[in-house]
Design a protein around this nucleic acid. Structure first.
Lengths: 206, 206
DNA sequence: GCCCAGGTCCATCAAAGGTTGGACGGCGTG
DNA sequence: CACGCCGTCCAACCTTTGATGGACCTGGGC
């Protein structure tokens, strides 16, 4: 009995590529394609695949992590393999937390994708080699938990807002903004707004 | 006589997808695949394709624009079609300036890709519909030309570097760095480093 | 009830960042 | 070739940011 796979990616070309790769394996059969998270969810309920191969970035609507969480909430829940171009720490952790059975970089060889799908179908977890160590590192020193307010400030910061502007936007005084900034800096281990934005981007925090 | 196409993308899956799409057309034949800009250049000289379909981002080494420029410098030069995930102004313009015969978003339908390749082979220019207007807008108010030095500063800036750090890195004084910053701010129409980084990212300048 | 954590607020001072104005060399054009 | 323009460089001055050390209030857990 072959392993059934649902492909989720917003790029037709990538879907075609994945289908071609998966069709090359005798024990795999692609049972559907979806372009959005919403579509993926609906199709999963209909066709009940063994594995969902899902891009992390899906253009409009739900992203890969939200889709993963929604799919894993179904029962019986198929394994979800996250596929992506980038290797941002926060996203890896987010995907794993959302119940993903693995995380693959798009740059990997076709054989690796097949291997990952088969591992996932057997209930295992597959992480691209270069990601495994990063995840472990991430586990050791988990990403700092920013409060909602702090994330709000961080987002404004990333748009280049000054303290004065953020204060206006958030209806607080400049002093309060500075206070939030200090907390953000401490949690991110930096000492300037510019660097805070940089690490926030790097870790996928924003 | 069929149109010959060389596929350039650092992701095996995407290459497979493109090959599948192009093989669907009777008058197209894929004569090779390359994973890097260097490889693409070498293969272009060997197999002399009519059209080179090239991803804008190629991981290590030359990027799509550099590769386009290098390929267009050959003679006879094949048409180069740029394929990408994103639609950043600066990159569109850069690609066109480098001699690209068009610019395609990866999200488009397979039929659109075929159409673009055929247009390119006939010597025409193809731009994804939503890009055309942006290019025109870009022409009307061209992106400011930053000098090499300014771009260098901007890149450091984006990593969150302080003036002092940039000065050390560039072997100039802090005052000089500030001077470059002023010019960058003026050209980008902003008044702070944070906002400069923001618009630089938005416009694909970095 | 008590305490602690998070959000808000504040003042002060040192250290960055940003503004202004100017010097020097290369390069193209009149 | 002289002129101006541009890129690079620099210094002095003023503004914003970041560090420090507090204060109050709210809500949740012991």
């Amino acid at each position: 009995m072959p392993i059934t796979v649902l492909i989720v990616d917003d790029h037709p070309v990538v879907r075609t590529g994945l289908r071609a790769v998966l069709d090359g394996a005798a024990d795999l059969v692609v049972v559907g394609e979806a372009a959005t998270g919403e579509e993926a969810l609906a199709m999963t309920e209909q066709v009940r695949p063994d594995v969902v191969l899902c891009d992390l970035r899906l253009g409009e609507g739900m992203d890969g992590i939200a889709t993963t969480a929604a799919i894993r909430a179904l029962s019986p829940a198929p394994a979800v393999l996250i596929l992506t171009t980038y290797d941002r720490d926060a996203e890896v952790l987010g995907a794993i937390e959302a119940g993903a059975a693995g995380y693959l970089l798009k740059g990997v060889a076709p054989a690796t994708i097949l291997e990952a799908v088969e591992t996932a179908a057997r209930g295992g977890t597959y992480l691209s080699a270069d990601l495994a160590t990063r995840v472990v590192a991430g586990m050791r020193s988990p990403l700092p938990r920013l409060t909602d307010r702090e994330v709000e400030v961080l987002r404004l910061l990333a748009t280049g807002a000054s303290n004065r502007e953020m204060a206006k936007a958030l209806f607080v005084t400049e002093a309060t903004v500075k206070s939030h900034l200090v907390h953000i800096f401490t949690k991110l281990g930096v000492d300037s707004r510019a660097r805070a934005v940089h690490v926030a981007r790097e870790t996928g925090l924003i």
